[in-house]
Design a binder for these strands. Structure first.
Length: 708
RNA sequence: GGGUCAGUAGCUCAGUCGGUUAGAGCGGGGGACUCAUAAUCCCUAGGUCCGGGGUUCGAGUCCCUGCUGACCUACCA
């Protein structure tokens, strides 16, 4: 290892102060934390800074909903974020907030620099304004009818039909904040003419080495091949953020101050620790590493370097860009129970599992990363518990009897071999290729277990016992040798794993009676020590923990769940009364009890569902399917849809359905099923199985008619 | 429609500058052992390296083309 001590400043993207930390966030913070711990273990002067991203309209809205000020709101979120991070062992040197005097200081400095550089232009733009909520409306806060196809309930920027437009083009626009009609107002906005940095950016992107090759391609093809659009960095009051000093009534857009929050957080730490902020941000001898997700690549690879460059700050040494998290191969989903909050995870599973599993999946590429629970279980159980922790468990049992010898015994070159891997493993960590690092580390584990197996210390112990006490010093010596080797091989592995599993290191230190403070500890054997009694370091992944976590996530997200716990009982009460009421039909209240009413929706919500009268023109069994019938629904004219409906048990003779009219959900996203594409849904009631009852329109209805 | 990336054993992946019989872990099958959290160790399973062309003495590895998938983008990030 080179003796040169590097200065390394590291950041993770600032989490937005508008929601809880979930496992998707953790992909980034865990991989950054691992990288930082690695650099520190290598003896470098490394600091990790982060902060909450606290500005913008969304924060104001959330605070209002709770009836508190924005400052109160973000303070609460910050506490919760930091608690979650700490529980996962993510250690920042400073965790700040963009709503801080330190961040404001840098905003002002950088702003005046880009003003001076002639990058700022003013322009009038027309925008929808909500007079009730007293705010200008971003695209996603306006809904209305698409000017092209006439669909209702579309967002301000685009329609499901594919049309793209500006919110001012919407017919009957409605503010989603107040449900009132917004008015058109014009306002002055400030734009950064980033195109003036085009040449610099092109060069930096291509030649700095700061970006992954696929990112370079992406930026070149997607942005740098054309003129760069001016960047709108201001928002008119009221806006929760910092007022622009030379443009009263205007505020910096949240994305202007977010990356500057990195600097603000650094300064905060500098003030506490007596360091010079310029040593970290204006120093060619200091490296700056940003870890971000691919969604915010644009801001960090174009705007941010342009801002830094204009203000004379150090450009990023490396922007480490990672992909998104999927769960069981799909996007995280609230209803499937895979939109898992950090806290929910912590309620059921050991954070080390996730640290380890994410590490196995981490590569320097921008690829998405999949969390498959079965795979996670298998890898933790096999790699960590079976291979590595088990090595400690089995060797410590003997080592605690014999202690470690004073000289390192002959081990067939195993210790040497693992020590020789030191730089390769380090290189893999450095490149953020933790999966590769772990492959090397696990090899050490296999070799160590094999050594232990071949040496068979349990048979040596039997020799000892047969001889009775100390009567066989040779056997004792051999037993001590085996223990010394295997404990040391274990310790090497633990040194290498320390960035990923700091808790496991702590437990190992206790067992070994010796701290692990440096990467080079892996190259020096530990000798002449007593070894403590082994205590379990890690248990296998509890299946029920995973299930309970998913269950809890589902409950957090269903209307009848934790948010409104009394809902079902309250609503059930009147239904029970109905059951005993004296109406002539004597209908039971049971169905309503079985499936309580959903929460209230607006007419717009309802209109989203396009219900049509359809005629079943074909109906057939799907031989291999347990529950499905294949239907062809005509909507009149030549319009037909193929549908797979789970009604086989209720309608065992599909040919009897042919010709009948049904109510049909016509705009449901098509779904690929095992037997083909299902392009909608027929409406039916009942609990399922044989008790499914299709809904038939009254006489006179024609295929294609919409239900209102 | 344009772009980026990927497609290697049931699963997750490794395969450096093109070079000899394509690898690992998990899982499966068989065996051994008992120190250890049913963990460990040994043996084994045989995949047209997505398909098709081409370059080459030689291609999983380079070029072209097709297919499939993920993501981005579709004249406001």
């Amino acid at each position: 290892m080179t003796a040169k001590k590097r200065n390394i400043l590291v950041t993770s993207a600032l989490p937005y102060a508008n929601g809880d930390i979930h496992i998707g966030h953790l992909v980034e913070y865990l991989q950054t934390d691992i990288w930082v711990r690695f650099q520190k273990l290598r003896g470098h002067n490394c600091r990790y800074f982060c902060a909450d991203d606290t500005h913008g309209t969304a924060i104001t809205i959330s605070a209002r909903k709770k009836g508190i000020t924005e400052e109160e709101f973000i303070a609460g979120v910050s506490r919760s974020h930091q608690a979650d991070f700490a529980a996962f062992g993510i250690e920042f040197d400073n965790y700040g907030s963009t709503n801080s005097p330190e961040t404001r200081r840098f905003c002002e400095e950088i702003w005046s620099a880009i003003r001076k550089a002639g990058l700022v232009e003013e322009r009038e733009i027309k925008q929808l304004y909500d007079p009730v909520a007293q705010t200008f409306l971003a695209d996603r806060f306006v809904k209305g009818t698409c000017p092209k196809c006439g669909r209702t309930g579309q967002y301000g920027d685009s329609c499901d039909c594919g049309a793209v437009y500006s919110p001012t083009d919407l017919i009957d626009p409605v503010s989603t904040l107040s449900n009132t009609t917004p008015e058109l107002r014009s306002a002055t906005h400030l734009f950064v003419e980033i195109e003036r940095c085009h040449e610099f950016l092109e060069d930096w992107v291509a030649n700095s080495g700061a970006l992954q090759p696929e990112v370079v391609n992406y930026l070149k093809g997607q942005f740098l091949s054309d003129a760069l659009w001016p960047w709108d960095v201001s928002r008119p009051a009221p806006y929760f953020g910092f007022e622009i000093p030379d443009s009263p009534g205007n505020y910096w857009y949240v994305w202007f101050d977010a990356p500057i929050g990195y600097m603000g957080s650094t300064l905060q730490w500098c003030r506490k620790s007596g360091e010079d902020v310029n040593f970290w941000w204006k120093n060619p001898e200091t490296e700056i590493h940003h870890f971000i997700g691919k969604d915010i690549c644009y801001f960090h690879t174009l705007f941010w370097p342009a801002m830094l460059k204009s203000a004379g700050y150090t450009l990023p040494t490396k922007v480490h860009i990672h992909g998104f998290l999927t769960v069981n191969g799909e996007k995280m989903s609230k209803s499937r129970g895979t939109f898992i909050l950090a806290r929910t995870y912590l309620n059921h599973l050991n954070p080390s599992y996730l640290r380890y599993f994410f590490a196995t999946k981490t590569s320097p590429r921008v690829d998405d990363l999949d969390l498959n629970f079965e795979e996670m279980e298998a890898r933790i159980n096999a790699d960590l518990v079976g291979n590595i922790v088990n090595l400690a468990s089995r060797s410590a049992k003997f080592a605690s009897v014999t202690g470690l010898g004073d000289t390192y015994p002959e081990d067939g070159g195993l210790f040497r071999k693992a020590a020789d891997l030191s730089e390769e493993i380090a290189a893999a960590y450095e490149e953020r290729d933790y999966g590769k690092a772990l492959r090397y580390i696990l090899e050490c584990g296999y070799r160590a277990n094999k050594f232990f197996e071949d040496a068979a210390p349990w048979t040596i112990r039997k020799e000892l016992e047969a001889a009775g006490g100390d009567a066989n010093p040779d056997a004792f010596r051999r037993l001590q040798d085996v223990a010394t080797v295997s404990v040391n091989l274990f310790r090497q592995i633990i040194v290498y794993l320390t960035p990923i599993l700091p808790d496991l290191t702590r437990q190992s230190e206790e067992l070994l009676g010796c701290r692990i403070t440096s990467w080079s500890d892996a190259s020096e054997p530990l000798l002449g020590k007593k070894i403590g009694t082994y205590k379990h370091m890690m248990t296998r992944v509890p299946k029920e923990g995973i299930e309970a976590m998913i269950e809890e996530t589902k409950n957090l997200n269903t209307p009848s769940g934790a948010e409104q716990p009394p809902a079902s009982s309250e609503e059930a009460a009147p239904a029970s009364e109905a059951a005993v009421s004296d109406d002539q039909w004597k209908d039971s209240g049971q169905p309503l009890l079985d499936e309580p009413m959903s929460e209230t929706i607006t007419i717009d919500d309802f209109l989203k569902v396009d219900l049509r009268v359809g005629r079943i023109v074909e109906a057939e069994q799907v031989a291999e399917a347990r529950k499905l019938l294949k239907l062809k629904i005509s909507l009149g004219g030549s319009e037909t849809r193929q549908v797979f409906a789970g009604i086989k048990a209720a309608y065992p003779e599909p040919e009897k359905l042919i010709g009948r009219l049904v109510v049909f959900v016509a705009n449901l996203q098509p779904r690929k099923m095992k037997f083909g594409l299902s392009e909608g849904m027929v409406v039916a009631s009942g609990p399922g199985g044989p008790d499914v009852f299709l809904t038939f329109p009254d006489e006179g209805a024609k295929p294609g008619m919409r239900l209102h």
